[in-house]
């Protein structure tokens, strides 16, 4: 199994193995990170995520913070306000109690800061080697905001693609810390909750928002490719609009990484109706987490399923999903 990096192979694993086993209903819809469940006339949103990050502690956060933000954001990307979280630990025997305390404190602090309470949870200890230190699973429950109806399949030609902030920091930080590559002092993860940004956007122009996604594993490139495939549209983006913090860019350069393929934990991609794009951009910039928001590009009828970037050099480059490890295509 080489399916871990969140690109093409993860998508195939989901499509070929996981979804078919869960029944036809799930297979027919576009895969999203959260689901809407109608209960007594209320649109509830539910999402679950298992966190297996290594290292557990990294500049800008730890696995606890990530577990809270990740699920809060997955709920929020459905245009919902998160209401409650559950947390489950799978702990390898011998895992330091001090570290567990530290992670749990992070969970508490992150949940409090986000204003989303942790309402229940579970803890299991497994034998040595049966887990790698600590796995954290969170489930989030939320309620869809009035006027919000988003799906990757809703992107339409003419729509505008917005990006809420700089990219590349999280994945680069994790890699650098895990492998001790020496960039840890200069870069920090961008992990942060995005539900307030989402609430601001939905309140301002809810129906104009067609798609919201947080470009986590596989980066912005994978997210845009998923949208293009789900909606059968082309997407064109502008390299000039892609902001990569200078130290992150320098690290990516040395490591041979394309920032568009690197995981983020603190920004979102929105596909919106063109008439509302400027207003939404202004709203996003009025929030702390969206103050670097930019107009990334647009949805087009041409080249359905393909994402193309207008480069600084004046060319148009195909932006592909990552296929497993980065195998150079150069001959």
């Amino acid at each position: 199994l080489g399916h871990g990096s969140g690109g093409q192979l993860s998508a195939e694993l989901l499509r070929d193995v996981v979804v078919p086993a869960l029944g036809a209903a799930a297979a027919e819809t576009v895969p999203e990170d959260a689901a809407v469940v109608a209960v007594d006339g209320l649109d509830l949103v539910i999402s679950t995520d298992a966190f297996v990050v290594s290292p557990l502690f990294f500049p800008g956060g730890d696995i606890g913070v990530l577990a809270v933000h990740g699920t809060v954001n997955d709920v929020a990307m459905m245009g919902a306000v998160p209401l409650a979280l559950t947390v489950a630990y799978v702990i390898e025997e011998g895992f330091p109690v001090a570290d567990l305390r530290r992670v749990t404190a992070s969970v508490g602090a992150a949940a409090a800061a986000a204003g989303v309470p942790v309402v229940t949870g579970d803890t299991k200890v497994v034998g040595r080697g049966a887990a790698d230190g600590l796995f954290v699973t969170t489930t989030g429950l939320g309620r869809r905001l009035p006027g919000a109806r988003v799906s990757a399949a809703f992107a339409r030609p003419g729509d505008v693609v917005l990006l809420s902030g700089p990219i590349g920091a999280h994945g680069t930080t994790i890699l650098s810390t895990r492998e001790a590559l020496g960039f840890e002092a200069e870069i920090v993860s961008d992990t942060r909750p995005l539900h307030r940004l989402v609430a601001t956007m939905v309140a301002g122009a809810g129906p104009a928002i067609h798609v919201m996604r947080d470009p986590t594993r596989g980066g912005v490139a994978s997210t845009l490719n998923e949208i293009a495939a789900a909606a059968r549209v082309g997407i064109e983006i502008d390299e000039a609009a892609v902001t990569v913090p200078a130290p992150v860019a320098a690290a990516c350069e040395l490591l041979g990484l394309d920032p568009l393929h690197v995981a983020n934990e603190g920004c979102l991609v929105a596909v919106v109706a063109p008439a509302a794009a400027d207003a939404l951009l202004a709203l996003m910039r009025s929030t702390p987490e969206g103050r670097w928001a930019a107009r990334l590009g647009s949805v087009v009828e041409e080249h359905p399923g393909r994402v193309v970037m207008h480069t600084l050099m004046g060319g148009r480059r195909v932006v592909d999903m990552l296929v497993g490890e980065q195998l150079p295509r150069i001959c």
């Binding site: 492998e179 590559l181 980065q326």
Partner: peptide, 24 residues
């Protein structure tokens, strides 16, 4: 210096280091 150190570490850790038996 930094490039040498980083690349050395990348090679040791196998970070983004696909292997090739290439003449080119």
């Amino acid at each position: 210096e930094r490039e040498v150190a980083t690349v050395r570490r990348m090679v040791a850790q196998g970070v983004n280091c696909p292997v090739a038996s290439s003449a080119g």
